[in-house]
């Protein structure tokens, strides 16, 4: 599965990057983000777009995996 690094990206880039990545790999992607705002935005996007989401956080880095 494709992994994209959205760390340091300002709103709304993390969501936009996720959306783009899902266009090229529709089966799912893993996104790295470094703040709660980006993580929450991606979570909302996943719910709206009908993806399942699992999330872990370690040392301020959020790993969000979106799958069909």
């Amino acid at each position: 599965m494709k992994t994209i690094d959205a760390c340091g990206r300002a709103c709304p880039e993390p969501v936009l990057m996720t959306k783009r990545a899902l266009e090229s790999s529709p089966e799912g992607v893993t996104v790295l983000a470094d703040n709660a705002i980006a993580a929450a935005n991606i979570t909302r996007f996943a719910a709206n777009a009908g993806f399942k989401l699992s999330q872990t956080e370690q040392l301020g880095i959020y790993t969000l995996t979106l799958t069909k």
Partner: peptide, 19 residues
């Protein structure tokens, strides 16, 4: 809440998200 006046309109157009 992360409320943002720009984000309101932007997210509706970009992500169809009216939150």
């Amino acid at each position: 809440s992360r409320l943002c006046m720009v984000g309101g309109i932007r997210d509706v157009v970009m992500f169809k998200d009216a939150h």
